[in-house]
Amino acid sequence: MNNNETIMEVKNLVKYFPVAGETFGKSSLLKAVDDVSFTIKRGETLGLVGESGCGKTTVGRTIMRLYEPTSGKVIFKGKDIVSAKPNEMKSIRRQIQMIFQDPYASLNPRMTVSDIIGEPLDIHRLAKGNARKNRIHELLQMVGLNAEHATRYPHEFSGGQRQRIGIARALAVEPEFIICDEPISALDVSIQAQVINLLEELQENLGLTYLFIAHDLAMVKHISTQVAVMYLGKIVEIADSHELFANPQHPYTQALLSAIPTPDPKIAKEHKRIILEGDVPSPIDPPAGCRFHTRCRFAKDICAQQEPEFKGDSKHQVACHLI
């Protein structure tokens, strides 16, 4: 692998959505992503975890400029994507692709598999005629399907197979960076492992870099080199995967990890869960100071007043006053 080259750097990324206010005319801001920074090295995987509404999907979509960022930089291979012009964006999107969560909604039901996978080839004018057909067959084989599937429609496939079609479509333009947005959460357990193994093989063979967005922490641990934990639009902790799971520092990360049910009756019996009280506050009016302080077991006065800065070394960073 191309050692240590930073392929993606996200700097102070912010995305606010305007939402209609309680009274007419007054609108307020939903702070979906608020000052998020991380870097990913070529050939590695950053796992982005957090609960629904924490902004992890918005991060992925803003990186691709499916949403225009409110502010911040997304530096891909040394170039800021945020300021790229539309024609530049087209070539950047060839290098960054996305795999979506729902394999039922993300494939056009009226297109054949060959059209679905061939569309990016047509858009980017990569192959025509026989070359196009051969490339489609090659891609199908790469994801564990075969040439005879090309003429069929999405409804003829199972969820796992559809996700393979989505992966083949993403691979068609030979991207370097793939954003996987909950690629397995709609699949059954035995099929999840198939798709994860496929993603790992492709990464090894093609040198791909992944941003892997998910809420299944065990899967994220399995596939990631580095893991970032998000809460209410902010990263609260980021560390090497092994380090984060062995030595979680932030109270939210600790609670999140302890909440995962363990498939082992003996461990489950002895295991004491940290139960968080209440629900996640609204991102429209997030708590001042540390956003987690309203549910934190250890919260002190300072947590409600000041926003915590990141502490730690390059291998493990935590945003918490109490560390």
Binding site: V189, S190, I191, Q192, A193, Q194, I196, N197, E200, L217, A218, M219, K221, H222, F245, L257, I260, T262, P263, D264, I267
Partner: peptide, 17 residues
């Protein structure tokens, strides 16, 4: 086919084909 967050070493998942 499910990974464990308690396992120390990384092993390939064994899917059911």
């Amino acid at each position: 086919s499910v990974p464990s967050i308690h396992s120390q070493e990384k092993r390939r998942l064994v899917p059911i084909p």
